[in-house]
C-alpha cells in the first residue's frame, strides 16, 4: 500500500531554506545539485543514494494527491508512494521536479520541472541493507 501523503509539505522545501550537507557546508534548497547529495551520501555511514525511476504516475482518491510508482535501485524493487501533486523530488542531473510544478512554485517559491515517467530520482536507503 502506498504511503499516505501528509496534508502539508515540510517547510524545508520552501525556497531559501538552509540545508546542511554532510561535510557541514550550508546551501539554500534551491541551490542544491546532484553532486551535493552524492557527496553527502559518500560521507554518511548509514545512508546511500539509490536511483529511483518513475514507472507510473496515477491519480489518487485523495484530493490533490498522486500515486507514484518507482523502480528502486539495482534490484528494481517496486515502491509506491502517495504524495501531494506539489511534492518535489530531486531528479538526477535536472534538479527539483514535481507532478505540478506550477503549484510547487506557487506554494514554496521553489522552481521545479515537470516530473515525468522515466525520470530518475534521488532516494535514500540504508548502507547496511546487504
Amino acid at each position: 500500500a502506498p504511503l499516505s501523503p501528509s496534508s502539508a509539505l515540510p517547510s524545508f522545501f520552501m525556497k531559501g531554506s538552509i540545508i546542511q550537507l554532510a561535510d557541514g557546508e550550508l546551501k539554500r534548497v534551491e541551490d542544491l545539485r546532484t553532486e551535493d547529495f552524492l557527496q553527502s551520501a559518500e560521507v554518511s555511514r548509514e545512508l546511500k543514494i539509490d536511483s529511483s525511476t518513475v514507472e507510473r504516475i496515477d491519480s489518487s482518491r485523495t484530493p490533490d494527491a498522486v500515486i507514484i510508482q518507482f523502480s528502486v535501485g539495482e534490484h528494481k524493487a517496486q515502491v509506491c508512494v502517495e504524495v501531494l501533486v506539489e511534492y518535489p523530488f530531486f531528479v538526477f542531473g535536472q534538479g527539483w521536479s514535481s507532478c505540478c510544478p506550477d503549484r510547487t512554485t506557487q506554494l514554496l517559491a521553489l522552481s521545479c520541472a515537470k516530473l515525468s515517467v522515466g525520470d530518475v530520482c534521488i532516494s535514500l536507503t540504508l548502507k547496511s541493507l546487504k
Binding site: L32, H75, A77, C121
Partner: peptide, 25 residues
C-alpha cells in the same frame, strides 16, 4: 528595529525520500 531570528538548518537527508526496498543479498 529588526530583531535577529534564529536560523533553522535542515539536514540534507530530509529532502529526498527514504525508499526502503527490504531487498537483501
Amino acid at each position: 528595529n529588526v530583531e535577529p531570528r534564529s536560523l533553522q538548518v535542515f539536514p540534507w537527508h530530509s529532502l529526498v525520500p527514504f525508499l526502503e526496498t527490504s531487498q537483501s543479498n
